[in-house]
Amino acid sequence: MNKTHDNKAWLFVLPVVALVAFNAVIPLMTVVNYSVQETFGDNVFFWAGVTWFEQVLQSERFHDALLRQMFFTFSILAIEVPLGVAIALTMPRKGPWVPVCLVLMALPLLIPWNVVGAMWNIFALPDIGLLGRSLNALGFDYNFTRQPGDAWFTLILMDVWHWTSLVVLLAYAGLVSIPDAYYQAAKIDGARPFAIFRYIQLPKMKRVLTIAVLLRFMDSFMIYTELSVLTGGGPGNSTTLLSIDLVKIALGQFDLGPAAAMSLIYFLIILALSWVFYTLMMRNEQQ
């Protein structure tokens, strides 16, 4: 092997290194810095070691928030992925309705997140909102600002409305890439609709669905804006997910140390779970 040794290459990588340093590494390091120190104000810091990490990991409050977070994320995944695939399957593959369907599907994704929160907040208000009033008129005792169950129902409904489209669009992209010959061959082989789904459509959608699950997993684990506008974590702490809790600790109580430690733990959880997801889903591919 003839390798050219030329250190000029480093020069070209430098701008990227600088950029990543400024927008990721340095902020992250600040957080790491806070997480191992204690301060009483006036910019005076004391070494605190792993105290904050121990405190966060042992705190019941963090455990509860994490459990709620898990519950939320797995609920919306369990609804959005099958629902998205089902909608994508019913969408036309050819013809004038294709662009119409695509635009309709993309609409929820184009709305700013805080607007989504505000919209659903008003929509669900039991006294003036369309959803809230209708449910009450139908005899349900619905009030998402007071009853935790109703708050969860509204939260999940909002997320499904907002993000199922993403799964639909990705699944649809996978579906339209299947050549007609596959469907024709399946017809000739006498395959039933379920067999077509199981052996043609699902395998061909696998890659995009992996991406969809990963994106939805990470995004829902970090949900903040819509949730904070809709319920603000309430009633009580019933919808306080990790991000809401983090903001309460960091900005509400100004406990920088514990908040920084929690951020890092939060970050590592997302990283680890994403990695597990990805390896599990890609392992089948290798076989």
Binding site: P179, A181, Y182, Q184, A185, I188, Y199, I200, P203, K204
Partner: peptide
């Protein structure tokens, strides 16, 4: 029927 592009059930 055998098509122009091979059709197999991948999984």
């Amino acid at each position: 029927q055998v098509f122009q592009f091979p059709v197999v059930y991948d999984t």
